[in-house]
Design a protein around this nucleic acid. Structure first.
Lengths: 331, 331
DNA sequence: CTGTTAGCGCTTTCAT
DNA sequence: ATGAAAGCGCTAACAG
């Protein structure tokens, strides 16, 4: 069943059916009605592949993320998809599994399926890998990178803001010996958070001792290991900021295992505000990075790029803020 | 850039290029090599939409789930996608948000994009809504329903097995007054778990008092509310089984809030074994339902259906098993 | 306002 | 083993 059958039933040409479907105003109301009736009667759905083939626009978007099982991403995916579907766009999701190598495959998929645009929400995006998309003139939105080729937009996340708020909070609680559990340092976003921490401490007149900086992996395992190291210090920190919530949750486990309590013996701050953050024991004080805002911004940016409405600068930014819960306390 | 350019560069016809791409054995090795070289040189990717249009197969699969932010699903999505991509298939994901109403829209998307098959991993699947897919002869795999139309397979999850193991475990720990926090009872899968609990109790000679059955919503909120009710009982339960881990985690919070401890004052068992289950305090004893197994089975079933290899029965089953951690203890 | 028609890029007979 | 050519279902340019 196709547009021809509809045309036959409605006694018009296929062109008129096409026009009606696409909401052209060059169809008389009466004709349009007849066509719509025929469509309903036949239960006709236009073939998107044929449409894509001729129009060159697939109405599909790519969403490349690091790992959907990382609780940070599902919400992002959900909001992005919700928005997209509302606008009649389909979303193709691709996981890189944190491996730059797998990115190549993701790119291939996007090109093959002729996506109208792609949102690259990974931090391991190697610009060189993206040349394929650039070459094919596919618009891209990046989270947090800083690539600046044509038909590209960046969403900059203001990590520093949230970290500043966290430091101010901890300082007001009389903490001075504050440790930081970083993420994988090959990720720009992880480095940014670390940088913000160090400069925030220094601007408050506290040089950070190297032993107070631990490296995690943005997973719980890394948080556990890092926290153990910190607790073994001759002079352990009185407060710890973790590069993400998963790390903080791991750290929390390690603290409990050591027979200590949060926030009684140690204050703890996370990053991301994943949904589990408020149901740890105690509820985690953390820095919120709104996934819905990120998704909405990304989609809006992408649409602008697709419509070639890029009037000059196409950079966006998203702020982060401290959410006070129960894992911090005055010293 | 298209197949014609490749043909020109390789000095063959487009038909030969097509054959080469599709691995036809009717192309001489020497010609094939020339074609491959040309493809590489031009960085050619076949247009999947054109392919779909002519072949009728889109090499896309639909995956309909209830809610990607429910931690049960991401892992399912990941495994399903991993498998699919390995086989050169694309996956379109659709969230129903637990609303049967939104299912209609999901179906439309699947039909429009001409998916080769769909995996319906929701419990709120209303068979009547799926008639559209049936009519268009699109194969479907269901989790846990029991629809039995043509070109359809069911994956039955043996909830009873896991619940039996949990009950046996709790009984061996001398618990007799065991409560159950159910999920939304419009979901077949939730009812199955409840049924398994009740019949398991009865077969052990324990009639279940109505007050020991609470209704949750498979979210944390429901677990909290339900647990509060249970704790208000004149004679509260000594152990609680929750219909899923999210519920159990909510219950855990309510127990802590009431100043009680798990497993000291109360034993608690979850269901699903989501990744967070092992990092609650204490780590949650739960019933594992393997998402990877589910995903792999679903994809295999779908492929069989697509290839029309359905030799008779096309039912599959997946078992569930107790994972003992720290939230249960002898009475 | 409506119809005719030429492709979009590919696969697939049917010839050779 | 290879090529020529007819569409797959739709849109868009052109006529009228």
């Amino acid at each position: 069943m196709n547009i021809k059958e509809v045309a036959k039933l409605a006694k018009v040409s296929t062109a008129t059916v096409s026009r009606t479907i696409n909401g052209s105003d060059k169809v008389s109301a009466r004709t349009a009605e007849r066509v719509h009736k025929a469509i309903k009667e036949l239960n006709f759905y236009p073939n998107t592949h044929a449409r894509t083939l001729v129009s060159g626009r697939s109405r599909m978007l790519g969403l490349i993320i690091s790992d959907i099982t990382n609780p940070f991403f599902p919400e992002l995916v959900k909001h992005f998809e919700d928005q997209a579907v509302q606008k009649g766009l389909e979303v193709i999701i691709a996981n890189t599994d944190y491996k730059p190598k797998r990115m190549t495959e993701c790119i291939r998929r996007m090109v093959e399926r002729k996506v109208d645009g792609a949102a690259i929400m990974t931090s391991e995006a190697d610009p060189s890998l993206l040349s394929e998309l650039t070459r094919r003139d596919i618009p891209m939105v990046f989270m947090d990178t800083g690539t600046n080729s044509a038909r590209t937009a960046n969403i900059n996340i203001d990590y520093a803001q949230g970290i500043q708020e966290a430091l101010q909070h901890l300082f007001s609680l009389n903490h001075r010996r504050i440790a930081f559990i970083a993420g994988p340092l090959n990720l720009k976003s992880a480095r940014r958070r670390l940088d913000a921490f160090i400069s925030g401490m220094e601007s408050r007149g506290c040089a950070v001792e190297p032993e107070l900086i631990e490296k995690g992996d943005h997973r719980m395992e890394g948080g556990i290991a890092a926290m153990r190291n910190l607790l073994r210090l001759k002079e352990p920190p009185t407060a710890v900021i973790a590069s993400n919530d998963l790390t903080a949750i791991g750290a929390l486990g390690a603290i409990h295992d050591a027979g200590l309590e949060v926030p009684k013996h140690l204050s703890l701050v996370g990053f991301d505000d994943i949904s589990f953050a408020h149901l740890t024991q105690p509820p985690l004080t953390t820095i919120q990075l709104s996934r819905s805002q990120l998704a909405i911004t990304a989609l809006a940016a992408l649409e602008k790029l697709i419509r070639k409405e890029t009037g000059g600068v196409s950079d966006y930014s998203i702020s982060t803020h401290l959410i006070m819960r129960g894992s911090t306390r005055t010293l």
